[in-house]
Design a protein around this nucleic acid. Structure first.
Lengths: 344, 344
DNA sequence: CTGAAAGCGCTTACAG
DNA sequence: CTGAAAGCGCTTACAG
């Protein structure tokens, strides 16, 4: 690890930034008054307020956040930790929407969102160090897989955390917001059944993800134990969905419907079905999950289950702010909704 | 704008984090010695080093970065500012590679990368405030369009900045790293010409982007003024590339080659050519630009111009660290390379 | 090699 | 409504 050598002459300290003292002097008041004016303006006269506003403009003053944070113990920023290989981020439109939603919801509280990617263990170490060093007031954790070592570290450091999706194994200890995956799956499978389909397969997500577990459970809620040959597993990628569909088709040639546990995987499944000469939905009805942008670009367009992503963001942020304020961890489960299009 | 109300009882200060004083006490040395041990270990005896290491383990001490930054005037973090609508980020694989490359290069210097997205003017205000408040030591600016108001703000605040790609209008004042777009375009068009193609069109990028300007210039370097009907403009999206290709084809039905200024646009162009019944490369040879992952997934695979993205990341980081240390802005132009596949 | 002390730029009771 | 003062947790000359 290289280390940055000592600068001969610092660019920025050359013209040292104005401090609160400069503002106080220019406004003819004390430092304390300037600080009060900066923090809500309680107990500051109109005259002082105005003089201070002028002085700030004149000096070009910007608060030094490090100094402020040192005393308030707050950084007014939170980390958005993405515990996935980076490529995933760029493949799954859900992440993008979630990211944007959280950024906006946080802005309401004047909190900045810092995106950190913890794809491999090196990243994770760096992120963990950064977060526990008190750079941020809390963390939004977005990952699909269970057994993330980051959770334990954050928990042991008392970093307020809110997870997106049920954090398998940590349901009691970490706050989270999740869509009602199980009920969504139930709705979809009930619908496929109502369509008169007899051989309904499933491409489930990995068993160490809440979506993998809950959507499969919903499927079984409706169909009972069912034929194990009808159950396949994908890894939430397009290729994974395609591969799972191919296996399913080979094993169950008379399949007439399939519930694929994510739109991205469903897109891969559609390709395989087309190549196999199956018409969708005539021969095989296909249901997805997420109602992401992909659902609209597939041919035919996907019947799917909508996750209320923007509400999820808002609730995650609310929970995190509460946690930072000292509230106990709690969970929010949001309803899902069947969206019927052409694929089923 | 809501403001976070005062906590009744703070989660974290409840069990107040250990400070350097706790470590000093546990190790039986002074605060100064602990600090020296933490910062390189110069002038600290072996015995003291070891006692301090033990004390740190025992207390679970983690440095308070705010306190450190307050005195060093360094935050050991830089912002990666993406000045594009967010969707772009997720569509263009180049950004992903650049992001990863910069993260890793910065890690060598023990600097954390913070991704900030400045898509609309609201975002921009927030990012600007964050950056100029001294949260970060510098910024990596990634945007394609000229006239970004953020540049002026950062410059006036003396924030060290390094841009990715030639910052139109700021070539003198901001450091940047760019690929040699013009030469890359020259290589491509020279190659298409050598193939015996007579009617070579171009789908250029927007005129307010360096890629838009330089790649078109390279085209003209080889072909001279040429027929204006052969020149079309796209917006670097897949749909934009498709639309531009359609216009070009309508205007110049005997077109036998086209240089499309980005792989993503080229992918759209290929779709349009296929729909128009043109074979690629037999009827129309197609050249792209970027050598992004898309170039391998199109049918046929794209002949394109490779940008040395990982070298670009490394150079950007090197330049930024230099800037932070007080060096003057400088520019690095990296060579591009023709990659021949099936589309031309 | 080590410790005592000043100081980084702020906020916040406290006394008026 | 306002100012003086303490203190947040660190680093860094300085003197030894």
């Amino acid at each position: 690890m290289m280390s940055v050598s000592k600068p001969t002459r610092r660019t920025r300290s050359a013209k040292t930034r104005p401090t609160i003292n400069d503002v106080a002097a220019a406004a003819g008041v004390s430092r304390g008054t300037v600080s009060r004016a900066l923090n809500g303006g309680h107990n500051v006269s109109r005259a002082a307020q105005e003089a201070i506003a002028r002085a700030i403009r004149k000096t070009g003053y910007v608060v030094n956040q490090h100094a402020r944070s040192l005393v308030t113990q707050r950084s007014q920023s939170v980390a958005f930790i993405l515990s996935e290989p980076q490529d995933r981020l760029f493949e799954d439109p859900n992440f993008s929407i979630l990211l944007r939603g959280c950024t906006q919801a946080l802005a309401e509280y004047d909190i900045t969102l810092l995106l950190t990617i913890a794809g491999d263990s090196d990243d994770r170490r760096r992120v963990s160090r950064y977060v526990t060093a008190g750079h941020v007031d809390g963390a939004l954790l977005v990952s699909t897989h269970a057994g993330n070592p980051l959770i334990d570290e954050l928990l042991s450091r008392d970093v307020p955390v809110v997870a997106c999706g049920r954090p398998l194994g940590y349901e009691r200890s970490v706050a989270y917001v999740a869509a009602d995956d199980r009920d969504g799956a139930r709705q979809m499978v009930t619908y496929l059944k109502a369509l008169g389909r007899k051989r309904i397969g499933i491409v489930a997500g990995p068993a160490d993800t809440p979506g993998g577990v809950d959507r499969l459970a919903g499927y079984h809620d409706v169909l009972g134990p069912s034929d194990p040959a009808l159950v396949e597993m994908g890894d939430y990628t397009e290729e994974g969905g395609a591969a799972a569909m191919a296996r399913l088709l080979e094993r169950v040639p008379d399949l007439d419907a399939v519930f694929v546990a994510s739109d991205l995987m469903a897109s891969g499944a559609l390709t395989v079905l087309r190549q196999a000469g199956r018409r969708v939905p005539e021969d095989v009805a296909v249901g997805g999950f997420d109602d992401s942008s992909i659902a609209l670009s597939t041919v035919p367009r996907l019947t799917t289950v909508r996750q209320p992503l923007s509400r999820i963001s808002v609730e995650m942020v609310r929970l995190l702010v509460d946690r930072i304020e000292g509230a106990e961890p709690s969970a929010v489960i949001l309803p899902t909704e069947l969206v019927i299009r052409e694929s089923a």
